[in-house]
Structure formats: C-alpha cells, structure tokens
C-alpha cells in the first residue's frame, strides 16, 4: 500500500498539535486574567452601582473564584463550545462568531484561490523567462506584495475603483444599502479579495519560481530533455508536478495568516466578518469577543498546518523515509 503510513502520520501530527492548542488556550486565559480593569465594572458600565450588585455580577460570571479554578472552569466551558458572553452585545460569543464566520470564510477562501492562481502563474512565467524582462516584472510585483500594507492597498483600490471610477461599491454594507445579501453579491467581494490576496500572490510566486528552478536543474529533467521531449511537455508533465509540494505547503501554512490579514481588510471595507468584529470588540473593549477571536484564528492556524503536512505527505512520498 503506497499510503499506508499516512493515517499514523496524520495521527502523530494531530497529537503534536494538542500542546500548541493548549498553549493558545492558556495564553488566552492569561490575557483575560491579566487585562487591566475589573471585568465586573466593565459589564456594569460607567454609572455607580452598589457593591452588592457588583458582587452578584462577579458570582454570576465566576469572577470571584481563584485563578486555577477559573482556568479549569474556562477549559470546561471551551469543551462545551461556550466561549463566554459578549460584554457589549450581551450575546453568546459563539453565536456571534458563527454569524460572522461565513463572510470571513468567503473572503479568505476567495483571496486564497485568487492568490494561488495569480501567484503560480507569475512564478511559472518568472522561472520560464529567468533573468529576462518577465522575470524582473514578476520579481518587482513580488517585492511590492511583501511591502505594501494590505489595508492601504484596500484604501487605494477604493479610491480608484469605487470613488473615482465608480465601478465597484465602497464597502460591504450591501444589506444596509438595500442591495440584497452581501454574501451573494460578487461586486462587494472583488476589492477586498484583491487587497487581501496581494501578499500571498507574492509569497506563492516566489516559492513557485524557486521550486521550479530547483526541479528544472535536476538530472531527470535533463534526461527527459535529452530524449527530445518538448519544453512545454516537460513543464506540464514533469517539472510542475515535482515543484508542487513546497508551493502547496506555502499556501496551506499561510491560510491562517490570510485569516489574520482579513482583520485589516475587513475593517477597511466594512466587511461583516470576524475581522470587523475584532475591530468592533477592540473599540468597545469587549474582552470575551477579542480573546475568542484570537483563539479561533490560532486554532485555525494550527489545524491548517496539520492539514497541510498531511496533504504534503500524500503528494511527496519521499517524506516517508524521513
């Protein structure tokens, strides 16, 4: 069986992920604990209330217990999918996140697909015309991708395509504007997805180029060439296939970071996802929402890495020997 070792490998990767997730949970808990200010007063608000009322609030939210007790209680709650209650919205945090998740997934997955297509294309062109004008152009694009802040790119795209040309909407307020559900309106997706994808276009293009160059200098490519196989067939049949694993690794490892990057882009475009929710929770000092978002993004990063390792293992049997 070619892939018989994969399940064991996957299990091992998952087990390795457990301490990482636990570490993230503990960081979250510590952040909540160490945050300045009495959460009870935050819950109540600015107006003066009797001390007994504050005590009742503390008891209600378990804020009067010792720190280890609170950590255990916190872990127990997480296992039940209880992420706490939003201070400012007075709503279950999990419900709030689930409400916002589809918008974020739509944005990040679109950005990832876009970045993969454009990035691989740029990388292939750069490798094919190595050292010539297309290569230089691709490398300059890559450099810009690493240097331009995605939120500023978002603003510039708005200035160009929304304000000046009027081709696309300013931001993701479609339901408010009466344009129907924002999630199914592609017009609103184009600019944020482009802004979010640019950095990953750069990353993928760079990896594709270097991986292709490495593979094309391998002996088996020279051997194939010496048998008279055409260059384009070599690229399609042999080089691309062998150059793919590192590129796929880069894409997978960065999914979590695209999710983090969407925080900035969603804020610029008013995109109604969890990034925008993080911005709202920061401005209203809504600790439970903030930390829950950190938790969900960190866990997604860990899981995306595990998944990437498994896909990598499936694609690259050489890994088995390691």
């Amino acid at each position: 069986m070619r892939h018989s070792w994969i399940p064991l490998f996957a299990l091992k990767r998952l087990l390795f992920a457990i301490p990482l997730v636990l570490g993230v949970v503990i960081i979250n808990f510590l952040l909540i604990q160490l945050a300045p200010g009495d959460p009870a007063t935050v819950l109540v608000g600015d107006f003066p209330v009797p001390e007994e009322y504050l005590d009742r609030i503390r008891a209600e939210y378990g804020l009067d217990k010792s720190i280890p007790e609170q950590l255990i209680a916190y872990l127990g709650q997480l296992f039940q999918g209880n992420l706490g209650v939003s201070f400012s919205k007075r709503q279950d945090v999990l419900t709030l996140l689930l409400e916002r998740m589809p918008a974020t997934l739509k944005l990040t997955l679109s950005a990832m697909v876009l970045a993969t297509i454009v990035g691989v294309l740029l990388g292939v062109v750069a490798a094919k015309y190595r050292g010539r004008a297309p290569d230089t152009a691709s490398q300059v694009t890559t450099l810009l991708g690493f240097s331009v802040p995605e939120f500023w790119l978002g603003q510039i795209l708005i200035l160009l395509f929304a304000v000046t040309l009027g081709w696309l909407p300013l931001g993701g307020d479609a339901p408010v504007r009466g344009d129907g559900d924002v999630l199914f309106n592609l017009d609103y997706l184009v600019l944020p997805a482009v802004a979010l994808s640019f950095r990953y276009v750069a990353l993928i293009a760079r990896m594709t180029r270097s991986s292709l160059l490495e593979v094309s200098s391998a002996d088996f490519v020279a051997a194939t060439r010496s048998r008279g196989v055409s260059e384009s067939l070599i690229l399609r049949r042999h080089t691309l296939k062998n150059a793919a694993p590192p590129v796929i690794t880069v894409i997978g490892y960065n999914f979590g970071f695209i999710l983090a990057g969407s925080v900035m882009v969603e804020t610029v475009f008013g995109w109604p996802g969890i990034g925008r929710l993080l911005y709202e929770s920061i401005t209203s000092r809504d600790y439970p929402v903030m930390t829950a978002i950190l938790l969900i993004i960190s866990v997604t990063v860990v899981l995306a890495n595990v998944l990437t390792d498994i896909v990598h293992a499936l694609l690259d049997p050489r890994l088995e020997r390691k």
Partner: peptide, 24 residues
C-alpha cells in the same frame, strides 16, 4: 524549538492587536 514553533504558529498581528488593546 517547541517554544519557537509555538511562537511561529501564533497569529502575530492579531495577538499584538489584542495585547495592545487590553494593556493600553
């Protein structure tokens, strides 16, 4: 190295945003 990996896994920007938001 496990600690290093852990820090590399953390979404840096989001964590920085939240820490600064919490602690001023």
């Amino acid at each position: 190295m496990r600690v290093t990996e852990f820090f590399q896994t953390l979404p840096r920007l989001v964590l920085a945003l939240i820490i600064v938001a919490l602690f001023g």
